[in-house]
Nucleic acid binder design. Sequence first.
DNA 1: GCATATTAGTTACAATTGAAACTAAATTCA
DNA 2: TGAATTTAGTTTCAATTGTAACTAATATGC
Lengths: 147, 147
Amino acid sequence: MAKPSLHLEKFLPYRLSVVTNRISGALSRHYADRFGIGIPEWRVIANLGRTPGLTANAVVERSAMDKVTVSRAVAALEAKGLLTRERDAGDKRKSRLTLSTRGQTVYAEIAPLALGFERDLLTALTADETAQLDRIIDKLNGKMDGL
Amino acid sequence: MAKPSLHLEKFLPYRLSVVTNRISGALSRHYADRFGIGIPEWRVIANLGRTPGLTANAVVERSAMDKVTVSRAVAALEAKGLLTRERDAGDKRKSRLTLSTRGQTVYAEIAPLALGFERDLLTALTADETAQLDRIIDKLNGKMDGL
DNA sequence: GCATATTAGTTACAATTGAAACTAAATTCA
DNA sequence: TGAATTTAGTTTCAATTGTAACTAATATGC
């Protein structure tokens, strides 16, 4: 029986994890730190920036973040005055979340930085590779859906 | 001035993060949980399984894990009797790490599971896409090297 | 040769995180 | 209707993690 020979440097889940963590870390240093905002908070802002009035649960569904993580991020953003909650009249369990003026300012400042970072990152790839990567990620996600 | 329009669903760092976390999570459930071994511990085992006698620091360099993470994983594995430390005669700061017989058994059991998971995951991609993904990851890592 | 700097690894501490249990509101169905 | 279930969101608790400070050993430079 041959040795299993699992070489981490060639093991895809590991390789993905390393490169992803490097990218997320750099990105977080780039903007989040500078604005005193963590990644979950930033993701909430990004969602509300594009789609005001979402409930916390809608953010959970869109962002693939944990319920608890979103709950805390929302509380933190509210405490910082970056968003407001408004109880839904029809269903009092829900709150509609909206960026405050200051929240919108933060979004307007960070979003271009994030997009700039992405653009810079993608200079490493050809247009074709970028498209490939997108398709590959979709396929991997599809595979993960089927567990 | 146009809206910044950062759509998370199309933002590469975010997409990478989601798919990677899904994969890592599934993998961890697959093997690590079942053997009572966390991801950092598993990575140390994988390194020592292929290359016995590494120092903790060598594992850090190869695995891109944090120093502290490795230190703790090594301590945990030693406590579980899965590896042994031997002080380096020439440089007493270093310890040579080697899997115990039981550690080798764990490696021999988990490695094929991990490789099988990877193989299954890659059925979602064509051979060509797999090769592309490998190249793309290398390119992104190269870009990150240049910060 | 001795003071200084560097390296290997650990410890202490604080922040982040998620699972599980919980509250409150809404829905189901008998 | 009203008891049982489900859903939105929060809180509690324990585990994981990284930063910074530390110890001990080696290497460097004057």
